[in-house]
Every structure is written in C-alpha cells, then in structure tokens.
Design a protein around this nucleic acid. Structure first.
Length: 189
DNA sequence: CGGCTTTGACCGGCGC
DNA sequence: GCGCCGGTCAAAGCCG
C-alpha cells in the first residue's frame, strides 16, 4: 500500500500558484479570470454520491462545471486504520483575491490528527444542522496564517471532516519524523 | 510562568 | 433594518 501522509497530501493538492493555467488535473481547464474551481478527490472506497453530506460549501453549479477526479492515491492519517479519506480541493479566485482550501474526511475515532504541524485552538462553535461542534485551529508557526477547522460528519460521526485554509509558508517541524514513519509504513505493507 | 484550551462576547456577511 | 449564522477575539483558567 502506498501510504502518504496528510501534510504531503496538502502540498500535493493545494495550489499556491496564482497562475490561472495551473491545474493539478488535466481535466481542469479554467477559461476565465474570475472563476471558482472545485474538484472532489475520492479516495479508497468512498463514493461520490454522498459528497453533499459532508461538504457544506458544495454547489451544484461547481459540480456541473468540473469533473470529479480520482488521483488513484490513498492516504493515511496518524494510524494505519485511518486511511478512508475523501478529499476535496477548492481553489477560489476572483478579481481581487485568491484563497486555497482543502477539506478531507477521515474515518477516525480521534478528532485531532497529527499532520506534522503545530496548531493552536482558538475557537469552538456549534453549527446549524449539525449536532457536533466545530473546532477552529491556527498554525502556531510565527507568521504562518494557515487555519483549519475540525468537525465530525453530521451524518456519520465516525468520520472527521478537516478543512485547511491557505497554505503553510514553512516546512513542517516534524518532516523528518514523518519521512521516517512513512518509510516504516510503506515497508510494512 | 509560559503556552494552551475554554468559552462567552463580538463582528461581519448574508438573506429576508 | 433586523436576525441568523459562521468565524474570530480575548479574558480566564488549566496544566506541565
């Protein structure tokens, strides 16, 4: 099993490149300078059909304009048992700004997954239509404005939905550690 | 004592 | 304009 790690996934899927011609899939061909681009990365055996159940910002028009992409990759979280992940990447652009957001859903009993970065919790809220609380985190690295939210899937509490906002401007402080762990997991499969 | 979490208050966007 | 809602702030408390 080719098991990568969450921080690697973020580096792979989030687009820090403002070039409008950028696409991490050949299926994506933006034609306007003012567009919203979304794609859904379905990993392992999670179907496309239930994506509405976990993605609050999903819009039907987005799905109609851009095809779903399966990169044929699978990822683990902090445990080899946590490798059912559905991933969604959203690259939003308009005339004045660009932001990158990635969300993925993980089957996990733990809400806090070690992705190699150091996070500081700054808020917790209950959200409408969900019995679960949403937790808000900021990257603790000085000058890094990356945020993430963590909440349990409102339809299946065995899943955790993690949304990353923006891109780290620094290396993970534990990259060496993760490299070693990844090597260990690969050799164990 | 420093860093972190908790939690109520506050703010801004959006729909009606 | 008003109320709802999601996101953020900041003071207080906790913990190593």
């Amino acid at each position: 099993m080719d098991l990568a790690l969450p921080y690697t996934m973020e580096q792979y899927f989030v687009n820090p490149n403002p070039d409008p011609n950028y696409a991490h899939s050949s299926n994506l061909a933006p034609s306007s300078s003012d567009f919203m681009l979304s794609d859904y990365l379905i990993l392992d055996d999670i179907s496309v059909d239930n994506q509405e159940s976990w993605s609050q910002s999903t819009e039907s028009s987005e799905k109609a304009n851009y095809s779903h992409v399966n990169h044929g990759l699978s990822y683990g979280a902090t445990s080899k048992n946590n490798n059912n992940i559905k991933c969604r990447n959203v690259i939003k652009r308009n005339k004045t700004e660009m932001s990158s957001r990635i969300a993925f859903r993980t089957r996990s009993e733990l809400e806090i997954m070690d992705d190699g970065y150091k996070w500081r919790k700054y808020g917790k809220k209950s959200v409408k239509n969900s019995p679960n609380l949403r937790n808000y985190y900021k990257c603790s690295f000085e000058g890094c404005g990356v945020k993430k939210t963590v909440e349990r899937d409102r339809d299946d509490s065995s899943y955790v939905i993690t949304t990353y906002d923006s891109v780290h401007n620094h290396e993970t402080p534990f990259s060496n550690c993760y490299t070693q762990i990844s090597s260990f997991l690969n050799s164990d499969s």
